[in-house]
Nucleic acid binder design. Sequence first.
DNA 1: GACTATTGCGCGACAATCGCGCAATAGTGT
DNA 2: ACACTATTGCGCGATTGTCGCGCAATAGTC
Lengths: 256, 256
Amino acid sequence: MIEKIDLDKRDWIAGLEKGLRVIEAFNDAHPRLTASTAARRTGITRSAARRYLLTLQHLGYVDSDGQHFWLTPKVLRLGWSYFDSAKVPRAAQPHLQRISVALGGAAFFAVLDEDDVVFVARDGFSQIQNVGFVLGARLSANLVAAGVAMLSCQSPAEIDHWLSGRKFVAYTPHTATTEAAVRENINNARNRGYALLEQQLTLSVRGIAVPIRKRSGEIVGAVSVSLPMEGETSERAVARALPLLREAEYALMSAF
Amino acid sequence: MIEKIDLDKRDWIAGLEKGLRVIEAFNDAHPRLTASTAARRTGITRSAARRYLLTLQHLGYVDSDGQHFWLTPKVLRLGWSYFDSAKVPRAAQPHLQRISVALGGAAFFAVLDEDDVVFVARDGFSQIQNVGFVLGARLSANLVAAGVAMLSCQSPAEIDHWLSGRKFVAYTPHTATTEAAVRENINNARNRGYALLEQQLTLSVRGIAVPIRKRSGEIVGAVSVSLPMEGETSERAVARALPLLREAEYALMSAF
DNA sequence: GACTATTGCGCGACAATCGCGCAATAGTGT
DNA sequence: ACACTATTGCGCGATTGTCGCGCAATAGTC
């Protein structure tokens, strides 16, 4: 993990970086950590890891039985600060509502964070009970229309970098699991100017998304809608959805 | 802000506490901060606040135009670590699914964090589009059945402390906005052993919740269900919902 | 009961963090 | 246009907070 830090050393708070590393060391596979395991996972010494865990415990972000440490719901405050403060999801909300009502599906605003798509705003419900579609949830960008829409705006070099060494997990029998198939989805999206994905993450569900840019051209996210596939051709769904998505796109462009 | 820290000074990482304070300084009313405003809001000096913001920026948790700083979606990773690692929401999930399917509403698992209810697991959808019912969302405990259920298990002293100096915001014309009314809700819940709230947060919506305890008796959270009120008496709704909630309660009791 | 792996904690040393204070800049009003 | 105020970035010397070693104690295994 070599990182180029051209930041003046005197403006770098080592303790904060390590502390955040400790919080992120908790995950699915490691729901509870001891001082030693935390040290191993974060690459800091055991003494230090223990100090960070104790500090987090006294701040209320982790709890402990003396041996093991685990995160408390207080850490959710940190993520929630983003929703409270970010203007992007808030600006998108009324447009999402209009889309979800008109189309009868669920509308999302998503952004890219490193390699993942993160859903930061939502309106409307659908029969899709997939836990992936929760605010703050992150998914590999190739799995959802919003992700492919954003990838399609990147330069070939960035896309190559994104694809390199990536493992594709099949969520349905239709999930694109080869680099070529994923690349085709991205190319299709670029050519069309919108992304259309079917049954990649959930069976019988279709996603349509358009990338959202600032006036400067910079990508800030994507607006997407999830629709049930049954009883509707993809052409018909696109014809219904695209005008609304475009409308949101233009409105949001001037908002940023 | 006098805090009693009987923790050995040598096990206290000051930089981590300040850094987290800086992240939490971003909120609804202060979506973007400068070094100076961050300093004022966190109580640390301007130089230090600037150092923390720069560190967060280089870690990717905040972005900046050079003057103002704002949070990026990366901070959502921190909150997500909790969902990935916490066993409580995961243990509750199958029960929530059973409840939501059987009752046709949305089922939640909620915990208390300080004074707020935090929803940490959900299954099923309802016509309730309230943004409050999102994973990680926090609400004043008196507004939702799950919160009242948990409050009803606290000691009188704890309840008094919770009530003291609290402002009650009316979300609907039926919201309990006086201390007496809130107290009555809590007392009713204690007497019945479950909480029943109607139209406190959303019109035409009824919530029913039971507190979840460990075997030791310690409260770990509450399971709740949101149901539309129309066409059903409260007695009938309770009769339908309570057996399922109790079933989840007993199952979860042995899980912790 | 010896073995290994882990833990809490004290200590001395070092470097990382501190906040002052300067100069430069941005924004306001007369 | 001018001074006036409130910012800002940044250098510096001082000190305090963080480091990781190493010990003794404990927990778990064969």
